[in-house]
């Protein structure tokens, strides 16, 4: 078996004195699409941030493509692993054109022939060339997310970290972006680690998933578990039911969920 694309061993992550993730351990194989699901505050985005180097207070082991990751920023690391953020309205610089945004990673890493690469990448993410010199405010949400994906792909990484890439978008636009991500993965042999709270999206995009609750991974299940709801952990079953997993039992399940307070 080859080395996994992402491997986490006993990962604890804290923000200041608060420990938000405890003992996260999982491997994502090369070419796999792996989902992290859970509610807000469960620590799923924090895991991605730690891998990307945005949450430096962690202990344990993170390795990507067999190479252990340090705590600081790492240029070689950026070339193999990139992240796409949740909200394309927030993740693009409002005063930089699409062209500047896409050329920047190339400039930082000293890669030439930038113009041609930018044009090629715009084509790959399904954006017309006329968008090249526009500002983010001149684009729709779906177009912006395409730019954000293009930016992540500029350095031709092998591993992509996706933090709820479609939750800020409409259903029909979500479908387009999900199709795009799926096609890019197929064409470029990418590995995805995707955070989402939307189980149907997992069913469409991913092969396996880890379910997180209160900073811990409670279950790792194959996507087929979504077909029949065969989850081992009670929390996962609740989550599955709340997502409309089992249409026959809707009202009853909702009633069961009511007893738990979010406070």
């Amino acid at each position: 078996m080859s080395t996994p694309a992402i491997s986490l061993q006993d990962l604890d992550i804290s923000y200041g004195d608060t420990k938000v993730v405890r003992g996260a351990t999982f491997d994502v194989a090369r070419g796999e699409s792996f989902a992290l699901v859970g509610e807000s505050g469960s620590g799923k985005s924090t895991v991605l941030k730690a891998i990307a180097g945005l949450a430096p207070e962690w202990t344990g082991e993170i390795s990507v493509l067999g190479k252990p990751r340090g705590h600081g920023t790492d240029r070689a690391f950026s070339e193999v692993c990139q992240m796409v953020f949740q909200d394309p309205y927030a993740s693009l610089h409002p005063r930089k054109t699409v062209d500047t945004v896409l050329s920047e990673p190339l400039a930082i890493h000293g890669i030439g022939n930038r113009g041609a690469r930018v044009v090629e990448m715009l084509g790959a993410v399904g954006l017309d060339r006329r968008f090249r010199f526009r500002f983010p405010h001149q684009l729709s949400g779906g177009q912006r997310q395409r730019v954000a994906i293009a930016r992540a792909l500029m350095l031709e990484p092998q591993v992509m970290l996706l933090d709820e890439p479609t939750s800020a978008l409409d259903v029909s636009v979500q479908a387009e972006i999900l199709n795009l991500l799926k096609r890019l993965r197929r064409e470029q042999g990418l590995t995805y680690l995707m955070v989402t709270h939307n189980l149907p999206v997992v069913s469409f995009m991913c092969d396996r998933m880890a379910v997180m609750n209160k900073g811990r991974i409670v279950e790792i299940a194959p996507k087929t578990a979504l077909y029949d709801g065969s989850f081992a952990d009670p929390y996962t079953r609740d989550l599955y039911a709340a997502s409309g997993g089992n249409p026959d039992a809707d009202p009853a399940v909702a009633a069961a969920l009511k007893t738990k307070d979010t406070a």
């Binding site: 259903v171 999900l178 149907p200 069913s203 469409f204």
Partner: peptide, 8 residues
């Protein structure tokens, strides 16, 4: 149709 389904 554009919505992903649980049994996709």
């Amino acid at each position: 149709a554009a919505q992903p389904r649980m049994q996709e």
